[in-house]
């Protein structure tokens, strides 16, 4: 009930940012433009979708879609237990969109994870640094055009000899 009302209100209030709404497996998905994500999510939060259950990203390289990347926000309303997925599209050339860390503190580390693995820049994030890969890592390995076996990072370590060279059995 709340979901339908909210979706109608969002579509009426933001005709330009909202691209479309779709339904998949019984759940509503709201597709919006990346640059306008903060105002849309702020409105949704004010309307009762108070909990950010997950924040992740999708590389549409082989899937097709409005843009190369979609950042997906999974919202939950604690009062009515209704769920809503919001997908924000960001282009390949300038993969950036506003941070929602000001709305939900939990977005801090999740946006860092998306930045680490997809290279998407979250404007206004307080500390946008890598969270899982080593600090000196180059590239964003969850992009579909990143080689699965990496760029020889896993072979790039010093080889440690035995401190004491044990002689081979002389037989």
């Amino acid at each position: 009930m709340l979901l339908e009302q909210t979706l109608a209100q969002i579509k009426e209030k933001f005709p330009d940012p909202v691209l479309e709404t779709t339904e998949f497996a019984g759940e509503q998905i709201l597709h919006v433009k990346g640059q306008d994500i903060l105002i849309v999510l702020a409105t949704l939060k004010a309307n009762g979708f108070n909990f950010l259950a997950d924040l992740t990203a999708i590389d549409n390289l082989t899937l097709g879609g409005y843009e190369r990347f979609a950042v997906s926000y999974h919202l939950l309303c604690h009062k009515t237990a209704e769920r809503l997925t919001v997908k924000a599209y960001v282009p390949e050339e300038k993969p950036s969109l506003p941070s929602v860390e000001s709305l939900w503190k939990t977005a801090d580390w999740q946006e860092r994870e998306v930045f680490d693995l997809f290279g998407i820049i979250f404007e206004g994030h307080p500390n946008l640094i890598r969270i899982m890969n080593p600090d000196d890592y180059e590239g964003h390995p969850l992009k579909k055009d990143y080689p699965r076996l990496g760029r020889k990072e896993r072979g790039d370590f010093p080889v440690i000899d035995r401190g004491i060279q044990k002689q081979k059995p002389s037989k």
Partner: peptide, 13 residues
């Protein structure tokens, strides 16, 4: 995968 060492014996005895 890119992030997992394929056998520690490549680097330590």
């Amino acid at each position: 995968t890119y992030s997992v060492i394929q056998g520690i014996d490549q680097f330590i005895p």
